[in-house]
Amino acid sequence: MTRTIIVTEAAAPAVGPYAQATRVGDLVFASGQLPIDPATGAFPEGIEAQTRRSLANLAAVLEAGGASLASVAKTTVFLKDRNDFAAMNAVYAEHFSEAAPARSTVEVARLPRDALVEVEAIALATGPAR
């Protein structure tokens, strides 16, 4: 089985020694996507805006790997504060309304660069990696 490292400028770059995603066969394993605006390197303010940005980064990485949000099988959402769950969940539902994937959501002590949210995913590739 072939392993391909996925890199795209349409999403925030990795902030450490890891790939934005890795494609193995027809599966795309997207690393946790922080809410970094790829154009400015900054975070938007608030949990809703950070969730939207994390999901936009995730969508871009998946697309580069030949997948999409529609082909996601599993996500993991990392929250700095579990009290932000309802607000995060409302934004998440905008992106995964029909046939939502399996999901785990966990509260963590701290995220890189003090982000409020980070989202990772496993998706089925439906096209070639770019």
Rank of each mutant, 00 (worst) to 15 (best):
M1A: 11
T2A: 15
R3V: 15
R3G: 01
T4M: 13
I5V: 15
I6M: 08
T8P: 07
A10R: 15
A10D: 13
A10I: 10
A10M: 11
A11T: 04
A11W: 04
A11L: 06
A12Y: 01
A12T: 07
P13M: 12
P13G: 04
A14R: 11
G16S: 13
P17W: 03
Q20I: 12
A21K: 05
A21F: 07
R23S: 01
R23E: 02
R23N: 09
G25S: 05
G25Q: 05
L27M: 14
V28T: 07
A30V: 09
Q33G: 03
Q33L: 08
D37R: 14
P38S: 08
A39R: 13
A39L: 15
T40C: 04
T40P: 06
G41N: 04
G41S: 10
G41I: 03
A42D: 07
P44N: 12
P44S: 07
P44Y: 02
E45A: 15
G46A: 12
G46H: 07
I47K: 06
I47L: 06
A49W: 05
T51A: 12
R52H: 08
S54E: 07
A56I: 05
N57E: 06
N57R: 02
A60D: 05
A60R: 08
V61W: 01
V61N: 00
A64S: 11
G65N: 07
G65R: 07
G65L: 11
S68A: 11
S68T: 09
L69F: 02
L69R: 08
A73D: 11
T75R: 10
T76S: 12
V77N: 00
V77Q: 01
V77M: 10
F78G: 11
R82S: 15
R82P: 07
N83G: 14
D84G: 10
D84H: 14
F85G: 07
A86F: 08
M88G: 00
N89Y: 11
A90V: 08
A90R: 15
V91R: 05
V91M: 04
V91S: 06
V91D: 02
Y92D: 06
A93E: 08
E94I: 10
H95N: 11
H95W: 12
F96H: 05
S97I: 11
S97Y: 06
E98L: 15
E98A: 15
A99H: 13
A99T: 13
A100W: 01
P101T: 04
P101D: 03
A102W: 01
S104Q: 15
S104N: 15
S104P: 03
S104D: 15
T105K: 09
E107G: 14
V108P: 01
V108E: 00
A109W: 03
L111A: 05
L111D: 02
L111M: 03
P112I: 10
P112A: 12
D114C: 07
D114H: 12
D114S: 13
A115Y: 00
A115E: 01
V117M: 08
E118I: 13
E120L: 15
E120I: 14
L124D: 00
A125M: 03
A125V: 02
A125S: 04
A129Y: 04
A129I: 08
A129T: 08
R130I: 13
R130W: 03
